[in-house]
Write a protein that binds this DNA or RNA. Sequence first.
DNA 1: CCCCAGTCCTGCGGGC
DNA 2: TGCCCGCAGGACTGGG
Length: 283
Amino acid sequence: MPELPEVETMRRGIAGVVGSQIVNVERTPCRLKPIRVSPQLSAFKRRTIGTTITEVSRVGKRVVVVLDSGDSIILEPRMTGLVLVADPPNEDHLRLRFYLRGGKSRELLFWDRRGLGSVHLVRPEEFAERYGLSTLGPDALTLTWQIMRERLRSSKREIKVALLDQGAIAGIGNLYASEILHLAKVHPELSCTEVTAAQWKRIHAATLEVLEAAIFHEGSTLSDGTYRNALNKEGGYQNHHRVYDREEEVCTQCGKGHIQRIVQAQRSTFFCARCQRLPRKRT
DNA sequence: CCCCAGTCCTGCGGGC
DNA sequence: TGCCCGCAGGACTGGG
């Protein structure tokens, strides 16, 4: 499930397309329901063919391909989407192909097994409206602990649920939220309003540490094997997971507790009740 | 405004 | 052996 580290790895992996010209765009033959592309493909092609890619960036969990026309292509992987400059895992789930000229790569591919992902071409005004700071929170890698606290402290939600809110902070998803809170030693069910300054500092430091380590290892490829980098290679951070998908295993942090799985907001949370304690209720 | 449950999708694994 | 159902969790929508 691509979160900030996986999407950042995709971004770095396709950085070589800068300077390439888009010569064609096509939906690939696919029996499955087509993914969402906006505007519709004829207008998408009219506005992209002939343009040159000037920059590849990232906004939250989306890859942004900037064109010399000023427009941006937003590649949104959601659950199972991949952005590739190499052969895809298979042809069955290949959704969109950009033919390129003048650079190292001849193609840029969007592959998506489940098809929840999407591709959008947006003008600068629409980019600012949909992906600017008024819609999406500051990036999890670049904010300070004070800003993190400011964005979340008044929320009535549990800290783990609030960390998933892209409008508050952009980039953290279900997997890394559990990892971050375990390293920070903060209970996932703690209400944001109860988090102390010392805990905000720990959550912030853990966010940087976990996300940067995950980027270093090029993301997490889970047992379903879906996630791949832009060259269709697996990530390595799954071998460093502290809690995610490790239910009942002994906690590596305290060596005594066992990892538990609970459900918050219909999503799995993993934690160690010995490392991550709730404050004792006053009577 | 804030928050939550439901929805979109496909493939996989468990139960029978 | 095959079928059905539940589950995985990104972002968005409608409703309270």
